[in-house]
Nucleic acid binder design. Structure first.
Length: 640
DNA sequence: GTAGGGTTAG
C-alpha cells in the first residue's frame, strides 16, 4: 500500500498539468475507443493506480475522453481515495460534453458519496434531467445516503422512485438493506426482505448475502441461520457472512460446526473465513483446530495476510501457547497496532506483565500510535501481574502523552488494579472522580475487589449501583452472596436469595467445555449425555475421596469445607469437564483450558484442590467477565 | 460494451 501512497501525489499533479492542454487539442475518436478498452481492463482488475496513469496518458495523447472513459476513471480515482481528482474529473466531464450521460453522472454521484460529499452528489442528481434519471442514478444516491448514515433520505428517495415508476432492481435493495442495522430496524429489514421477494429478486446471491448480514446486525442470529439454510446456492461470501455473524456474536462452537460443513461441501475458504474460524478457536481455547487452520492457510498461500497473522497471534495466546504466538509476531515484517495489541494482551493474560510493558514501550519506539484498546491490555497486564504503580503511571500517561480520554473500560481496569492490591478506598475515590458515568464493569471491578478483601460495606455500595445498572446480571448477586458467605453473614445470603426470587432471576445454566482431539466436549450440570459418562462419574468420586484425604492432611479439623465440596445433589459442569480431562490424560497440553459461562466459588476451590493433588494446571475462562471487556482482554483468566 | 453491491483482525 505504501508505494501506492507515494505515487498518488504524482498522479494528481500529472492530471493538473495535462488537462490544461486538453481543451485545445484535437480529438481522435478511434484511439479513444482503444484507450477505453485498456482502461476498462485495468479498472476491472482493480489496478486503479495503473488506470489513473493510463487516463493521464489519454489526456497527454491529445484524445478527449468520452462517456465510456469517465466511469472507469472516476471509479479508479474514488478507489484510490483521491478527492481532489474527483472534482477535477467532474470538470473534465463538463468540458468534454458528457454532462448528460446518465452513467457518467451516476459515477460522479457515487464518487462524491464515497467522499461523503453528499451535497455535491445531490446537486449532480438534481441537475440531471428526469428523463435521464435511470435506476442506476437512484441506486447510487440511495447507497450514498445509507453509507453516510443518512438512511431516512435513502428511504425517502426509494419511495420517490417507486412513486414515479422508476424500476427497482437488486442494487436498489442492496443499498437499502445495508441501512437496516441495529435491533430497532429488524422490522424494517424484514419488510425489505418481503419486498425483495415481491420484486422477484430473491434469486440474487448478493442481496441474499446482504439480507443475511442484516439479520446478524439486527441481533437476530436465529433468523439469519434460518435464512442461510434456505439459500439454495450459497457462495463463499454467504458462508463467510454466516461464519462472521456467529463469530461476532461469540457463538464459537457454531462457527466451527459451520466451518466443518463448509469443508464437507467442498467450498474453498478464504482469509475472511479463517479470521472468523481463528477467533472462535481462540475463544474456545481450541488449539487443535487452530493449528489445522494454520496449515490450511499456508496451503492456500495466505500466510502473509496481516489479518490472519494477527488472528493467529490471538488464537495461540488465548490457547495458552504464547511461544507460537511470539514466533508469528516476530516473523511479521510489518507489525501494525492490532499485532502489538494482540501480543501485549497475550503476555498480560499470562501474568507476564513486565514483558507486556516492554513490548508496549517497543511499540511506541516503533512509532505506532497507541489507541484505547491497546491501553486496556496494558492496564489489565499490570493488574494481572500486580504492577500497581506502573499501571497507574500508564493510566495517567494515556491522556497526558497520547491525548486519549480514558473510557469506562480503562477505569474498570484501574479499579481492578487498585482493588486487587487492597487499595479499596483509592478505587472508590477514582470512581467518584470519573468525568464519565461509571458502567457495570467499573462497579463490578470494585465488587470483585471487595470479594477478595471481604469488604462487606463497600461491596454493598457497589452492588447497589450494579443493581441499578444491570438489574438482571445474576453474576453480581452471586458475588455479593459469596462475600456474605465468606464472612458468615447468613442473613445477607438470605436477603440476596429473596431478592433474586422476587426478580425471578435464576443462575442461568452454566456449561463448561474442554477441547480434546479437535472436538469440543460440552458439559452442563448433571450431564449424562457424554459417551464416557460412566467413567467421568467414576473419576469424580475418586477425586472427591482424594479431596477429603487431602483436606485431612492439610487442614486441621477443617473437614466441613471438603464435605461441603462433595455433597452436592447435582454435579456442576466444571467438575465434569475436569474429570473428563483427567480421564483422557493424553490431552497434549500441560495447561487445560476450561471455558465456563459462570464459575461458582465452590467449583473454584474444587478445581484448585484437584490441581494441587494431580499436579496439573487449569486455565479457566469466565465468560461473564470476558464479556465485560469486549474488545480487550482483561481479568478473564485465572491460574491455579 | 457503460453503473450499482455483499464477508475480515486486537
Amino acid at each position: 500500500m505504501s508505494w501506492e501512497k507515494r505515487k498518488i501525489p504524482r498522479v494528481v499533479s500529472l492530471l493538473k498539468r495535462k488537462y490544461t492542454t486538453l481543451s485545445q487539442s484535437s480529438s481522435r475518436g478511434n484511439t479513444t475507443a482503444k484507450w477505453n478498452t485498456q482502461l476498462r481492463e485495468l479498472s476491472k482488475r482493480g489496478e486503479y493506480y495503473e488506470a489513473m496513469t493510463l487516463y493521464s496518458q489519454i489526456l497527454r495523447s491529445g484524445c478527449v475522453p468520452n462517456a465510456l472513459s469517465f466511469p472507469y476513471a472516476i471509479k479508479s480515482s474514488a478507489s484510490l481515495s483521491l478527492p481532489l481528482t474527483a472534482s477535477q474529473l467532474h470538470s473534465h466531464v463538463v468540458k468534454s460534453g458528457c454532462g448528460n450521460d446518465p452513467f457518467v453522472l451516476t459515477s460522479l454521484i457515487s464518487s462524491y458519496s464515497h467522499f461523503s460529499h453528499l451535497q455535491n452528489a445531490r446537486k449532480v442528481f438534481d441537475e440531471t434531467s428526469s428523463s435521464k434519471k435511470l435506476t442506476v442514478c437512484y441506486n447510487a444516491l440511495i447507497s450514498g445516503y445509507v453509507k453516510n448514515h443518512n438512511c431516512d433520505h435513502g428511504f425517502t428517495l426509494f419511495f420517490e422512485m417507486r412513486g414515479i415508476g422508476v424500476p427497482v432492481n437488486s442494487v436498489t435493495m442492496l443499498g437499502l438493506v445495508r441501512g437496516c442495522v441495529g435491533p430497532l430496524q429488524l422490522n424494517l429489514g424484514m419488510s425489505m426482505h418481503c419486498l425483495n421477494v415481491k420484486f422477484g429478486l430473491d434469486n440474487d446471491v448478493s442481496v441474499g448475502n446482504c439480507l443475511l448480514t442484516m439479520y446478524v446486525k439486527c441481533g437476530s442470529i436465529e433468523y439469519a441461520r434460518k435464512f442461510f439454510d434456505c439459500i439454495p446456492h450459497k457462495g463463499l461470501i454467504t458462508w463467510n457472512a454466516m461464519i462472521s455473524g456467529y463469530a461476532q456474536n461469540g457463538l464459537a462452537a457454531q462457527v466451527l460446526d459451520l466451518y466443518r460443513h463448509m469443508e464437507e461441501e467442498g467450498v474453498i475458504p478464504d482469509a475472511v473465513t479463517f479470521v472468523g474460524v481463528l477467533s472462535s478457536c481462540a475463544n474456545l481455547g481450541n488449539k487443535k483446530v487452530g493449528q489445522k487452520v494454520e496449515v490450511e492457510i499456508e496451503r492456500l498461500g495466505l500466510q502473509y495476510n496481516s489479518f490472519l497473522q494477527n488472528a493467529l497471534i490471538t488464537m495461540y495466546s488465548k490457547c495458552g501457547d504464547l511461544g507460537s504466538a511470539r514466533v508469528i509476531f516476530d516473523d511479521m515484517p510489518e507489525k501494525n497496532l492490532v499485532s502489538w495489541t494482540a501480543i501485549i494482551g497475550g503476555y498480560g493474560t499470562h501474568g507476564l506483565g513486565e514483558t507486556a510493558l516492554k513490548l508496549f514501550d517497543a511499540m511506541i519506539k516503533n512509532d505506532i500510535q497507541p489507541d484505547g484498546p491497546v491501553f486496556v491490555n496494558v492496564l489489565s497486564a499490570c493488574s494481572h501481574a500486580g504492577l500497581t504503580e506502573k499501571g497507574l503511571s500508564y493510566f495517567y500517561s494515556m491522556e497526558r502523552d497520547y491525548g486519549l480520554k480514558p473510557r469506562p473500560e480503562h477505569y474498570a481496569c484501574v479499579v481492578d488494579l487498585l482493588g486487587r492490591s487492597g487499595c479499596l478506598e483509592e478505587a472508590q475515590r477514582l470512581i467518584k472522580s470519573m468525568p464519565i458515568k461509571p458502567d457495570g464493569a467499573v462497579w463490578g471491578a470494585l465488587l470483585g475487589a471487595c470479594k477478595i478483601h471481604k469488604n462487606v460495606k463497600l461491596g454493598e455500595l457497589a452492588f447497589e449501583k450494579l443493581v441499578e445498572l444491570e438489574p438482571t446480571n445474576v453474576g453480581y448477586y452471586i458475588l455479593l452472596s459469596n462475600i456474605y458467605s465468606d464472612v458468615g453473614d447468613l442473613d445477607g445470603i438470605l436477603r440476596i436469595r429473596v431478592m433474586m426470587k422476587e426478580r425471578n432471576l435464576k443462575k442461568d445454566m452454566g456449561c463448561s467445555y474442554v477441547e480434546f482431539k479437535g472436538k469440543t466436549h460440552l458439559f452442563v450440570a448433571g450431564d449424562k449425555q457424554h459417551p464416557q459418562t460412566k467413567d467421568i462419574y467414576r473419576i469424580l468420586i475418586k477425586l472427591e475421596d482424594l479431596i477429603v484425604e487431602f483436606d485431612k492432611l492439610n487442614r486441621k479439623g477443617g473437614q466441613e469445607r471438603s464435605q461441603e465440596l462433595i455433597s452436592r445433589t447435582r454435579v456442576h459442569s466444571e467438575r465434569l469437564a475436569v474429570a473428563f480431562a483427567l480421564l483422557n490424560s493424553d490431552i497434549g497440553t500441560d495447561i487445560l483450558v476450561i471455558k465456563n459461562l459462570r464459575i461458582c466459588g465452590e467449583c473454584h476451590l474444587f478445581i484448585k484442590l484437584v490441581s494441587k493433588i494431580v499436579d496439573r494446571q487449569f486455565i479457566i475462562r469466565d465468560a461473564t467477565r470476558f464479556h465485560h471487556f469486549k474488545g480487550g482482554v482483561c481479568s478473564c483468566n485465572d491460574y491455579w
